[in-house]
Design a protein around this nucleic acid. Sequence first.
DNA 1: CAGTAAACGGACGATCTCGTCCGCTTACCA
DNA 2: TGGTAAGCGGACGAGATCGTCCGTTTACTG
Lengths: 226, 226
Amino acid sequence: MTTESSRNAARDTVRADARRNRERLLAAARAVFAEHGIDAPMATVARRAGVGVATLYRHFPTRDALVRGAFARQMRTCGRALHDALAAEDPWEGLTHLVETVCALQREERGFPAAFLDAFPETTAEHAGTREQAERDLTSLVRRAQASGALRPDFHPSDLVVALVAHCGLVAALPDDAKAPRRLVAYLLQSFRATPSDDPLPPPTTLTLRGFPATPASGGGASRRG
Amino acid sequence: MTTESSRNAARDTVRADARRNRERLLAAARAVFAEHGIDAPMATVARRAGVGVATLYRHFPTRDALVRGAFARQMRTCGRALHDALAAEDPWEGLTHLVETVCALQREERGFPAAFLDAFPETTAEHAGTREQAERDLTSLVRRAQASGALRPDFHPSDLVVALVAHCGLVAALPDDAKAPRRLVAYLLQSFRATPSDDPLPPPTTLTLRGFPATPASGGGASRRG
DNA sequence: CAGTAAACGGACGATCTCGTCCGCTTACCA
DNA sequence: TGGTAAGCGGACGAGATCGTCCGTTTACTG
């Protein structure tokens, strides 16, 4: 017994270099995936982390495991943001702060969130429990904001998702320093208000129709490079 | 001389099967790129077109050439939409119609516009002339709409690009039948108005936080599959 | 209808990525 | 401080994609 428990304790203690390398790999993965898209060579991630390929595969047996692992931190941050939003006394404040926070996070890691959505369109199953809780929380936040009169009555919780995904795509599509995403957020938040606001918009970019009508969407691009 | 010109005439006349195969390839490319992302195997495109690989490479020596070729039609459509928008007597009508048209086009070919932006972030150089004209046209349309009082005064022409790119990303990120993109367009157009409109929004989807907080962006995915 | 040049398609070598295997190194424990 | 198991990294075979080469087919001309 004593032997067993001590053995288990020993097993639970991960070796320091292993833990360090794991963190390095996650950071490298976020960076590489954001830059080169989700199916960048595994070897690139390993090199960026200053680690051998085998080490990468030992920590994350599949590419999916790596991607999900790299995303976990952002998931946690989002969860916390939602929690904070619920805690705010003014629900509209909470809502806008939530949007700003998540959008800032997206900008931080540019292509990665978009790449993640790319690769995992379906429910990320293992977080189903958390997700359901998040849905309930979000719905209640929206209800409260509507009750307070700040949020338009026809706003639907899923509209927040719409806004976030749209922002996510915009960030991924535009160059790093683009101001456009902030402008999008400002427009959307204004249109979510029950009563029009006269807050000034953040400044626009100079007009660059990168490829309009060259592209039906115009603008710049990112993530996967052909 | 006579010989030469007739020879040239003969040369200008492309063989019927060649032309047919070219069209087939373009259609196949649009479909395949939209579905599997911009770096789907060339062989897939060829097979989808019912054509050998060599034929594909003969018509389009590089992947870029194929992508650009496949996109040309959409470019033309966008150009026409902008032209129509300018011709409209009510500039606000013209503007909204332009947005609706381009967005509809994006929905039609789902992943492809996004994939295109992915691959060609920079100005699609060869259309620079057209682009400058488009920029001028768009700017003038915006000015007119503002002068008419319908468009908010702080609207910047680049905001239209923002809206279109955002929509483009949303379409690519969501499943085929998603209603969310329409809702986004409605919100944005409302926030572009100088005076608030009470047009009802298109119906929302049921709430699906596909992966919220699993993803900072939440929602569904498309295009390239990991 | 016959000749010819253009177009076609499949096969093939080169290149790249994946994921595993195995001998070496190192962090932890007594 | 020495033993040991866990961790490490580079090499390597399998599989896939790329882009070209060449023998065959076919659309146009006279």
